[in-house]
Design a protein around this nucleic acid. Structure first.
Lengths: 317, 317
DNA sequence: ACGATGCAATGCGCAATGTGCATAGTTTTG
DNA sequence: CAAAACTATGCACATTGCGCATTGCATCGT
């Protein structure tokens, strides 16, 4: 009987769809199906009624749901409490962030001179936006690092969380290039000309919404025709490099490809949006290491070269 | 993160010894050690201080213990509740009983014509007395089968439980025998003569207390000198057969060895105590199968040959 | 009504994880 | 001091879980 089975159940209870739940849990549908079956075997009763569409909870499943939530919450709370008690060097700080930030930003940030002088043991759990938020809220992770824009979807507002800005990035529109390095697509075309669009899927939850925001502010509608969807910026990047269409991508994600001339920004600076990179944590006293890092980050925020250090890094790319 | 890791932790918290805990959990010591390590990795803090002897709980481990107990209890309670809701043939009935009853009584009882005509799926969790009671109270098991004597420790009185008698046994004093089949030890000896005594350890919780009761009623004190302790009647039996001393043992446990002349009763019938074998369950409506069995047992209780059937079995032995 | 698509379960080969045995190093016991 | 007990670790093997491919069924769109 594994804790992850309980979390699997919570996912299927929410989505009522094995395939969707499996994706959300980052496993294949068959593996997800078998885990739910394993849980049902342990319980000794069916929790899901698979004969309906969408699937429904059985009576037992409905009764199980609140207790299941309680168990999961309690387990993670216990874990956090133990870490707090243990404190000091035996604890590991857990971070969660978007895949892009986990891949391109976090290693540099955690390795920068100001941060790396702290003796921290860290683990990073990359996830999509909603999942990252859930990891932080459920106590699975100590910190969440994500993009934030004032006009974008609210991030953990109104809850017991605090945040600090630790960097900046920019969402830009990019296209693959021809042999001369010129963009394959541009937005200054006739309104009737369709532009193949590489879109963020629903599971992204954040960047796609910011992209929509920028487009709504453009001087005329763009005739974008979605030809591919992905929740991962890197997936969209590869399609853009392959010439399949245009995509909104964080600058940090495409800096290297742009330097190599494989991708080019289109639409200019007006067709872009600056985003903050913010780190969130639960407000109030945390573990010894967690509090130590937070205090350190607050002090760094007062250094004028701190944030521009990361800007310069991107600009140099 | 597995439920069994939590149960492992409860075992090491109780025993303070990896080897003993591993045996109790029916796995090897290295596997047990690694499971505790896995739990500690998940928690992110040490729960056990291995630098002391016996091992101790760390501060984090001490803090974790009550929450861990709660989680385990809650998980099994949830499981039972789900089975109850689901009802019918998908459920399995779980029994818990003393090791002796699990080994010698339960297989015969569940296989007797009156019981085996019911289509039941059953599982049996043997434990010592207190653990059995806990399994039933915590909802880990549907039924508990144990010895009961009016003058012995109260069994689940005052709580929401009901019980039915399903058999009888007798606690008798036995000794190993010489080549002629005569007892090696007898209680009719001078008061100054020590009798080597194979005693129940504290973890037994029931039979040992009944034995003390009988001895307190004997016409003069017995000069018993404890030479060995065990929580398992079978352990005491083997020592008695080996000639190491006298032991109080349930008749059902020693019937075979007595027939073979390897053990003999001493002290006569006065030096024995009849015990009921009773089955307990939580009062009120249970699962479909649980209620079905209970009704069936009530009907059997009305049959005059029911209980004597099991007496005759022992007498014939 | 039909074809295309989506959904959940299952078989299969492979990957990952966990196990017991043997052993090493340390501590405790007699 | 030697023997026994205790805990962790290496290693080979066993067990379990995974993703891919597929199947059977239901839903959706034309």
């Amino acid at each position: 009987m594994e804790l992850q089975w309980l979390e699997d159940f919570l996912e299927i209870a929410a989505t009522r769809n094995f395939s969707t739940a499996a994706t959300a849990r980052n496993i294949s549908q068959p593996a997800f199906s078998r885990r739910i079956k394993s849980l049902e075997n342990w319980i000794g009763a069916d929790l899901i009624d698979r004969s309906t569409y969408p699937v429904q909870l059985t009576r037992a499943g409905t009764m199980f749901l609140p207790g299941c939530q309680r168990l999961v919450r309690e387990a993670y709370r216990l874990r956090t409490d133990c870490r707090n008690v243990a404190g000091e060097s035996s604890a590991m700080l857990t971070f969660t962030s978007l895949h892009t930030l986990a891949m391109y930003f976090f290693p540099r940030w955690i390795g920068s001179p100001l941060i790396s002088r702290m003796p921290l043991r860290t683990s990073m759990h990359a996830a999509d936006f909603l999942e990252s938020i859930d990891h932080l809220c459920s106590g699975q992770c100590d910190f969440a690092i994500t993009y934030v824009h004032p006009d974008g979807p609210p991030v953990l507002e109104g809850g017991p969380f605090e945040s600090l800005q630790i960097g900046k990035d920019r969402l830009i529109l990019v296209s693959g290039t021809d042999d001369n390095g010129r963009p394959l697509f541009d937005i200054d075309v006739a309104e009737t000309t369709e532009i193949p669009y590489l879109a963020y899927s629903w599971s992204d939850g954040y960047i796609g919404k910011l992209a929509t925001l920028i487009q709504s502010r453009w001087r005329r509608p763009l005739n974008l025709s979605t030809v591919y969807q992905s929740g991962l910026a890197d997936g969209l990047k590869h399609m853009a490099i392959a010439g399949r269409g245009v995509a909104w991508l964080p600058q940090i994600c495409v800096a290297e490809a742009m330097r190599q001339g494989r991708l080019a920004q289109i639409g200019g600076q007006q067709m872009s949006l600056e985003m903050e990179i913010r780190i969130f944590r639960r407000a109030g006293p945390g573990s010894h290491d967690s509090d130590g890092l937070w205090q350190h980050l607050k002090q760094c925020a007062a250094l004028p070269q701190y944030k521009s250090g990361f800007d310069a890094d991107i600009d140099a790319a």
